[in-house]
């Protein structure tokens, strides 16, 4: 069936099986391999995408559910810019090790900062609690989200 949606800011349509998992569709048909699969059952968060700004798990969504939605993947997060402040902060603060969780973590953090631009460390941990990381022990990820929040606040102040 034909499914129409907005993918990383661009109107898109694709003809595909309605029960295709969104993760497979985006990775295989659109080549968006920044979306990872760590479990396929909702437990790890590596397959996170933003659906109308909310972090959701693309391993538990079927293609039809994309209809009319606006989807952001890690590849589209920076938009016109070279890097989103979260991406910059993840590198600078050492939040990336193997990096397999990073795209999902960054998108989950993006969803948090949209809703709560000045989160506490506890709130950050809670917001990232659906994204497992086996490498970092999370601390530097929390540092990075804090740093990005500050950077984004500054940007906003500058912009007036």
């Amino acid at each position: 069936m034909i499914i129409r949606f907005v993918l990383n800011g661009e109107e898109t349509q694709i003809d595909c099986a309605p029960d295709r998992r969104v993760i497979d569709l985006l990775r295989e048909d659109f080549g968006l391999t920044g979306i990872k699969e760590g479990c396929g059952s909702g437990e790890c968060g590596t397959c996170t995408i933003l659906v109308d700004g909310e972090n959701r798990l693309s391993c538990l969504m079927l293609a039809v559910q994309l209809e009319g939605k606006s989807i952001t993947t890690i590849e589209g997060l920076a938009g016109e810019n070279r890097q989103h402040p979260l991406q910059e902060a993840f590198i600078r603060c050492g939040a990336v090790q193997c990096g397999y969780c990073s795209p999902g973590m960054i998108l989950a953090a993006r969803a948090l900062l949209t809703e709560n631009p000045e989160p506490t460390r506890e709130q950050i941990r809670e917001a990232l609690s659906g994204n497992l990381c086996r490498c970092t022990g999370y601390q530097k990820i929390v540092d990075a989200v804090e740093a990005a929040a500050r950077a984004m606040q500054k940007q906003k102040e500058k912009a007036g």
């Binding site: 909310e54 959701r56 798990l57 969803a111 948090l112």
Partner: peptide, 9 residues
């Protein structure tokens, strides 16, 4: 319950 993405869905 679950986690933030689970609660979103």
């Amino acid at each position: 319950l679950g986690s933030p993405p689970i609660r979103n869905m």
